[in-house]
């Protein structure tokens, strides 16, 4: 287990380094001069000294091969530069928005699990029947629906016409709609996966044996079917969680939720390259951490994985 743990953490760190390298190189994708692009129309109001300062902050005064070491050294010191407009340090700014994003992601995930997993199981149990077709049609609609459209429609209906939930803000009332929106979309994917996992399990011989030896249907389902499906379900829930963290970019924008996604979009539109790089790095760290934790849980559950 320890060897597995060390190997897994090592690959995780490698992944992060490669992500950081890619992030540091993104600046070279900017057509023309990045600093000019950042300044946009306001470039004539900015002093040449300030331009030079920003240039050195981005590491653009150094040769290409020093770009990544420079970037990495700063990141390891916890310095991701400062924003251009407002001159705020990037890392504290990002971290201050992180709690809100996590709250929304967990709430959305809870909705997704509560809706997606039971419906997927019910569909599998009713495979081929009317209820299954209806549920799977609903799930296909769910994966085809643009998340921002669903969000806006719910916003019109519940906040503007019925006045039940506030239009924007960060209290509990304003958490309901965004969590429900992202939860429903994620539930569609989860239900499809849960169904196919369960369909396979229900065809196993040991389910037939369990029924044949006279166990009640409830025990067959709970003990023999649901339990083995959990490994797969946990995996896809973790996958949906990373999707949800990324999907927040749109959700937060629709509901004016004051989190990382909202900050990222404004950074993107204002060409705050430091901030975008910081956002991607924080996001990568979260994703990689989740996948390491998940793999360790798997390895704990299933010994075959550690000896692979």
């Amino acid at each position: 287990m320890l060897t597995y743990f060390i190997r897994r953490v090592f690959t995780a760190i490698l992944t992060l380094i490669i992500a950081a390298f890619a992030v540091s190189m993104l600046i070279y994708l900017v057509p023309g001069d990045p600093v000019d692009a950042m300044m946009g129309d306001s470039s004539s109001f900015v002093s040449p000294e300030r331009v030079e300062e920003i240039r050195s902050q981005l590491g653009l005064d150094k040769p290409v091969y020093l770009q990544f070491p420079f970037f990495m050294a700063n990141v390891l010191r916890g310095d991701m530069g400062r924003t251009i407009f407002g001159n705020e340090p990037v890392l504290p700014l990002l971290l201050s928005k992180l709690p809100n994003t996590l709250i929304l992601a967990f709430a959305g995930l809870a909705v997704a699990i509560l809706i997606g997993v039971p419906l997927g199981y019910i569909a599998a149990y009713q495979k081929g029947k009317f209820l299954d077709s209806i549920l799977m049609l609903g799930a296909t609609l769910g994966i085809s629906m643009p998340v921002f459209w669903l969000g806006l429609m719910l916003l019109v209906l519940f906040s503007m016409m019925l006045g039940i939930f506030p239009v924007a803000g960060s209290g509990f009332g304003s958490l309901v709609l965004p969590a429900f929106t992202s939860g429903v979309i994620a539930a569609a994917t989860i239900a499809r996966m849960a169904r196919s996992t369960m369909v396979e399990i229900l065809q196993e011989d040991y389910i037939r044996s369990a029924r044949a030896k006279g166990l009640s249907e409830r025990i067959v389902l709970m003990r023999h079917a649901v339990k083995p499906s959990l490994v797969g379900v946990v995996g896809m829930i973790a996958h949906m969680f990373t999707w949800m963290l990324g999907g927040q970019i749109i959700i937060e924008n629709v509901f004016a939720w004051d989190g990382l996604g909202q900050l990222a979009v404004s950074a993107l539109l204002n060409r705050e390259y430091n901030l975008i790089q910081g956002y991607i790095l924080i996001y990568s760290t979260m994703v990689v951490t989740i996948s390491v934790v998940l793999d360790l849980i798997y390895a704990g559950l299933d010994p075959r994985i550690r000896y692979e």
């Binding site: 992944t15 992030v23 994708l29 999707w243 975008i276």
Partner: peptide, 20 residues
Amino acid sequence: DILYSFPALLIAMALVAFLG
């Protein structure tokens, strides 16, 4: 595998942000 650890939307967004 590394690319797979990020949602497609985020990768596309990062590229568009820098390409314009």
